[in-house]
Simulated assay, not measured.
Amino acid sequence: MYHISNPVKIFSSLVLLMLMAFSQVSYAESGLAAFKPGTVIKEFGKVAEVDSQLAIPQNMKFKVAFDLGSAANAGEVNRQIDTLARFINMHVAAGVKLEDIELALVVHGKAAMDMTHNTLYQQTHKNTPNANKPLIAELSKYQVKFYVCGQTAAYYGISQNDLLPGVDMALSALTAHAILAQQGYSLNPF
Protein backbone atom coordinates (compact mmCIF):
# COMPACT_ATOMS: atom_id res chain seq x y z
CA MET A 1 0.00 0.00 0.00
CA TYR A 2 1.25 3.47 -0.90
CA HIS A 3 1.39 6.34 1.57
CA ILE A 4 0.97 9.89 0.29
CA SER A 5 3.44 11.97 2.25
CA ASN A 6 3.01 15.32 0.50
CA PRO A 7 -0.30 15.71 -1.36
CA VAL A 8 0.52 19.31 -2.45
CA LYS A 9 3.77 18.20 -4.08
CA ILE A 10 2.02 15.31 -5.88
CA PHE A 11 -0.82 17.60 -7.04
CA SER A 12 1.69 20.18 -8.32
CA SER A 13 3.58 17.47 -10.20
CA LEU A 14 0.37 16.20 -11.82
CA VAL A 15 -0.60 19.74 -12.90
CA LEU A 16 2.87 20.26 -14.38
CA LEU A 17 2.66 16.96 -16.30
CA MET A 18 -0.78 17.86 -17.64
CA LEU A 19 0.44 21.29 -18.78
CA MET A 20 3.40 19.69 -20.52
CA ALA A 21 1.11 17.22 -22.30
CA PHE A 22 -1.27 19.97 -23.45
CA SER A 23 1.59 22.16 -24.62
CA GLN A 24 2.87 19.28 -26.79
CA VAL A 25 -0.57 18.82 -28.37
CA SER A 26 -0.95 22.56 -28.88
CA TYR A 27 2.51 22.78 -30.43
CA ALA A 28 1.74 20.00 -32.91
CA GLU A 29 -1.56 21.58 -33.89
CA SER A 30 -0.05 25.01 -34.40
CA GLY A 31 2.81 23.44 -36.39
CA LEU A 32 0.41 21.82 -38.84
CA ALA A 33 -1.78 24.92 -38.90
CA ALA A 34 1.18 26.94 -40.20
CA PHE A 35 0.99 25.11 -43.55
CA LYS A 36 -1.45 26.53 -46.09
CA PRO A 37 -2.34 25.62 -49.67
CA GLY A 38 -0.03 27.14 -52.25
CA THR A 39 -1.06 29.58 -54.92
CA VAL A 40 -0.01 27.40 -57.87
CA ILE A 41 -0.86 23.81 -56.94
CA LYS A 42 -3.69 24.30 -54.49
CA GLU A 43 -4.54 20.70 -53.57
CA PHE A 44 -0.97 19.56 -52.89
CA GLY A 45 2.30 20.95 -51.56
CA LYS A 46 1.16 22.98 -48.57
CA VAL A 47 3.72 25.57 -47.43
CA ALA A 48 4.48 27.73 -44.43
CA GLU A 49 5.44 31.38 -44.65
CA VAL A 50 9.06 31.85 -43.57
CA ASP A 51 11.09 34.95 -42.78
CA SER A 52 14.15 33.62 -44.62
CA GLN A 53 17.60 35.10 -44.05
CA LEU A 54 18.90 33.47 -47.26
CA ALA A 55 17.73 35.73 -50.06
CA ILE A 56 16.82 34.14 -53.38
CA PRO A 57 18.77 36.03 -56.06
CA GLN A 58 16.71 37.96 -58.59
CA ASN A 59 16.14 36.02 -61.80
CA MET A 60 17.13 32.78 -60.05
CA LYS A 61 16.48 29.72 -62.20
CA PHE A 62 15.93 26.42 -60.43
CA LYS A 63 16.73 23.16 -62.22
CA VAL A 64 16.46 20.49 -59.56
CA ALA A 65 16.36 16.70 -59.73
CA PHE A 66 14.87 14.68 -56.88
CA ASP A 67 15.39 10.98 -56.14
CA LEU A 68 12.62 8.67 -54.94
CA GLY A 69 13.12 5.09 -53.81
CA SER A 70 10.54 4.70 -51.03
CA ALA A 71 6.93 3.89 -51.83
CA ALA A 72 3.99 5.39 -50.00
CA ASN A 73 1.64 3.23 -47.99
CA ALA A 74 -1.17 1.75 -50.09
CA GLY A 75 -3.66 4.40 -51.12
CA GLU A 76 -1.64 7.31 -49.71
CA VAL A 77 0.08 10.16 -51.53
CA ASN A 78 3.85 9.74 -51.54
CA ARG A 79 5.15 12.65 -49.44
CA GLN A 80 8.31 12.83 -51.53
CA ILE A 81 6.26 13.41 -54.69
CA ASP A 82 4.27 16.04 -52.78
CA THR A 83 7.61 17.74 -52.06
CA LEU A 84 7.80 18.79 -55.72
CA ALA A 85 4.43 20.56 -55.42
CA ARG A 86 5.68 22.20 -52.22
CA PHE A 87 8.88 23.28 -54.01
CA ILE A 88 6.86 24.98 -56.75
CA ASN A 89 4.38 26.59 -54.33
CA MET A 90 6.93 27.98 -51.89
CA HIS A 91 9.29 29.36 -54.53
CA VAL A 92 6.53 31.05 -56.52
CA ALA A 93 5.26 32.56 -53.24
CA ALA A 94 8.82 33.79 -52.61
CA GLY A 95 8.85 35.62 -55.95
CA VAL A 96 10.45 33.08 -58.31
CA LYS A 97 8.79 33.03 -61.73
CA LEU A 98 7.03 29.74 -62.46
CA GLU A 99 8.82 29.49 -65.80
CA ASP A 100 12.16 29.61 -63.92
CA ILE A 101 11.44 26.34 -62.10
CA GLU A 102 12.30 23.03 -63.79
CA LEU A 103 11.94 19.89 -61.73
CA ALA A 104 12.59 16.22 -62.39
CA LEU A 105 11.93 13.13 -60.28
CA VAL A 106 13.94 9.95 -60.76
CA VAL A 107 12.07 6.95 -59.35
CA HIS A 108 13.45 3.52 -58.50
CA GLY A 109 12.87 0.66 -56.09
CA LYS A 110 9.44 0.03 -54.63
CA ALA A 111 8.43 3.64 -55.38
CA ALA A 112 8.10 2.70 -59.07
CA MET A 113 4.64 1.30 -58.32
CA ASP A 114 3.56 4.80 -57.22
CA MET A 115 4.01 5.81 -60.88
CA THR A 116 1.65 3.18 -62.33
CA HIS A 117 -1.95 3.08 -63.56
CA ASN A 118 -4.55 1.70 -61.18
CA THR A 119 -4.67 -1.60 -63.09
CA LEU A 120 -1.14 -2.59 -62.00
CA TYR A 121 -1.11 -0.58 -58.78
CA GLN A 122 -4.26 -2.29 -57.48
CA GLN A 123 -2.81 -5.76 -58.17
CA THR A 124 -0.05 -5.10 -55.66
CA HIS A 125 -1.97 -2.86 -53.23
CA LYS A 126 -5.07 -4.88 -52.26
CA ASN A 127 -7.31 -3.26 -54.89
CA THR A 128 -6.60 0.26 -53.55
CA PRO A 129 -6.49 3.06 -56.17
CA ASN A 130 -3.22 4.93 -56.69
CA ALA A 131 -3.57 8.19 -54.71
CA ASN A 132 -0.51 9.61 -56.51
CA LYS A 133 -2.29 9.75 -59.88
CA PRO A 134 -3.89 13.22 -59.43
CA LEU A 135 -0.68 14.67 -57.96
CA ILE A 136 1.43 13.39 -60.87
CA ALA A 137 -1.15 14.73 -63.35
CA GLU A 138 -1.06 18.13 -61.65
CA LEU A 139 2.74 18.28 -61.54
CA SER A 140 2.89 17.28 -65.22
CA LYS A 141 0.92 20.45 -66.04
CA TYR A 142 3.97 22.37 -64.78
CA GLN A 143 6.41 20.40 -66.93
CA VAL A 144 7.77 18.29 -64.07
CA LYS A 145 9.65 15.36 -65.58
CA PHE A 146 9.24 11.87 -64.17
CA TYR A 147 11.66 9.04 -64.96
CA VAL A 148 11.27 5.47 -63.74
CA CYS A 149 14.39 3.34 -63.56
CA GLY A 150 14.15 0.75 -66.34
CA GLN A 151 16.12 -1.76 -64.29
CA THR A 152 13.59 -1.43 -61.46
CA ALA A 153 10.74 -1.67 -63.97
CA ALA A 154 12.17 -4.90 -65.36
CA TYR A 155 12.42 -6.34 -61.85
CA TYR A 156 8.80 -5.49 -61.00
CA GLY A 157 7.39 -6.28 -64.45
CA ILE A 158 6.41 -2.68 -65.20
CA SER A 159 6.14 -1.68 -68.87
CA GLN A 160 5.92 1.81 -70.37
CA ASN A 161 2.18 1.16 -70.87
CA ASP A 162 1.80 0.63 -67.11
CA LEU A 163 3.11 4.13 -66.33
CA LEU A 164 0.88 7.13 -65.72
CA PRO A 165 0.74 9.86 -68.39
CA GLY A 166 3.77 12.12 -68.09
CA VAL A 167 5.97 9.38 -66.63
CA ASP A 168 8.78 8.08 -68.84
CA MET A 169 11.08 5.09 -68.64
CA ALA A 170 14.85 5.62 -68.37
CA LEU A 171 17.52 2.99 -68.97
CA SER A 172 18.25 3.25 -65.25
CA ALA A 173 18.03 5.71 -62.37
CA LEU A 174 21.80 6.05 -62.62
CA THR A 175 21.48 7.03 -66.28
CA ALA A 176 18.67 9.50 -65.61
CA HIS A 177 20.65 11.27 -62.87
CA ALA A 178 23.76 11.47 -65.07
CA ILE A 179 21.80 12.95 -67.98
CA LEU A 180 19.97 15.43 -65.75
CA ALA A 181 23.28 16.53 -64.22
CA GLN A 182 24.67 17.11 -67.74
CA GLN A 183 21.56 19.21 -68.47
CA GLY A 184 22.30 21.44 -65.47
CA TYR A 185 19.99 19.93 -62.84
CA SER A 186 21.29 19.97 -59.28
CA LEU A 187 20.46 16.94 -57.15
CA ASN A 188 18.32 17.71 -54.15
CA PRO A 189 19.99 15.90 -51.24
CA PHE A 190 16.72 14.83 -49.57
Results as ranks from 00 to 15, higher is better:
residue 47 V to W: 08
residue 14 L to Y: 13
residue 89 N to S: 04
residue 143 Q to L: 05
residue 176 A to Q: 04
residue 152 T to Y: 00
residue 116 T to N: 09
residue 56 I to A: 09
residue 125 H to V: 01
residue 72 A to C: 09
residue 56 I to G: 10
residue 78 N to P: 01
residue 100 D to Y: 04
residue 128 T to G: 01
residue 183 Q to P: 05
residue 141 K to C: 08
residue 8 V to C: 06
residue 20 M to V: 09
residue 93 A to Y: 05
residue 171 L to T: 12
residue 65 A to P: 01
residue 159 S to A: 13
residue 140 S to F: 05
residue 36 K to S: 11
residue 8 V to I: 15
residue 98 L to M: 15
residue 74 A to S: 11
residue 180 L to Q: 02
residue 169 M to L: 15
residue 179 I to M: 12
residue 162 D to G: 08
residue 145 K to D: 03
residue 51 D to R: 07
residue 98 L to F: 10
residue 163 L to A: 03
residue 50 V to P: 01
residue 88 I to Q: 00
residue 11 F to L: 10
residue 97 K to A: 15
residue 88 I to D: 00
residue 102 E to A: 10
residue 161 N to R: 13
residue 69 G to S: 14
residue 186 S to V: 10
residue 109 G to D: 00
residue 10 I to D: 13
residue 174 L to P: 02
residue 23 S to W: 09
residue 53 Q to T: 11
residue 143 Q to E: 10
residue 14 L to E: 14
residue 75 G to N: 04
residue 136 I to Q: 08
residue 59 N to L: 06
residue 87 F to R: 01
residue 157 G to V: 06
residue 145 K to H: 04
residue 64 V to A: 07
residue 179 I to A: 06
residue 52 S to M: 07
residue 21 A to L: 11
residue 79 R to A: 14
residue 59 N to K: 14
residue 143 Q to S: 09
residue 160 Q to Y: 07
residue 47 V to R: 04
residue 88 I to L: 07
residue 74 A to E: 07
residue 164 L to K: 02
residue 97 K to E: 15
residue 126 K to N: 13
residue 35 F to W: 12
residue 74 A to Q: 08
residue 138 E to P: 00
residue 151 Q to D: 05
residue 49 E to N: 13
residue 135 L to A: 07
residue 86 R to T: 02
residue 53 Q to W: 12
residue 10 I to M: 14
residue 108 H to L: 01
